[in-house]
Simulated assay, not measured.
Amino acid sequence: MATNQQDVKLLGATGSPFVCRVRIALNLKEIEYKYVEENLGNKSEELIKYNPVYKKVPVFIHNDKPISESLVILEYIDEIWKQNPILPNDSYQRSQARFWAKFIDDKIVGAAFKSVFTIDEKEREKHIEEATEALHILENELKGKYFGGEEINFVDIAAVFIAFWIPLVHDITDLKLFTEEKYPKLYNWSQEFLNHPVVKESLPPRDPLFAFFKARYEGLLAASK
């Protein structure tokens, strides 16, 4: 069941892993929506109006009602559109999915980015250690093809950052935080996940994103000399 494009709008930025989460969920559920690309250097009045607290993307707008924060948006989408559920029906399993999605945000996303984009060597080592430990914990949590078993679920979508953004950023540096040798189960999961047709169509183009992060990394190196 698709909805009218005018009812559903997503304010986003192509390179954001958090926006990508929402796009995966919408595509998985075959929901029609209008996508609006935001310039985060010059935020639109619409973005500020609909997310006055954080002024960040993604913002999901359904019948002129805005919802912010990617994991909150995913839950909302799953509650409103019942087809192709992304959260388990069982209450306990649902709580576990929420736990692991939050774990990814709290323990992996920030630490992985800071392990690359931090100049101070001690700080950098601390972030590498934190991300490494968290990835090992997540590796041990993965029991099947996906975190959702045979189908993509809430945790898989939350973990798109690990599958796509970490390898992209680390291709720019000598730091190999996420490798097949260190995390065989997670690595195999990432290949399955990235090759899923819905995920493939939802991912941003790699080359411009690679160029953006490379320029940022080289600028950081130049500033540190």
Rank of each mutant, 00 (worst) to 15 (best):
K145S: 12
D7S: 13
K214H: 04
E32D: 14
P197D: 13
E139P: 00
K56D: 11
L11E: 08
Q5D: 11
F210G: 08
A134N: 06
F147Y: 07
K126Q: 14
E123P: 03
E121G: 05
K200E: 15
L10D: 09
F193W: 09
F193E: 11
H170A: 08
K49R: 12
S68I: 10
F154N: 10
Q191M: 09
A163L: 13
P17I: 05
E192F: 12
D90N: 15
W189R: 02
D171S: 15
L175Y: 06
P85E: 06
H127L: 08
V57A: 03
V109G: 01
F212R: 09
S224G: 07
Y183D: 04
G149N: 04
R124T: 07
C20Y: 05
E79M: 12
V199M: 04
K56Y: 11
W81C: 05
G15W: 09
R124Q: 15
A158L: 04
I77E: 05
A159H: 00
E151N: 14
Y187F: 15
G15R: 08
Q83E: 15
N188D: 14
V109A: 03
L194I: 09
I61S: 03
G12T: 02
R21F: 04
V198N: 03
K185A: 11
L71M: 14
L177I: 04
K225L: 14
Y33K: 03
H127N: 13
P85T: 04
E121I: 12
V8Y: 00
I166T: 07
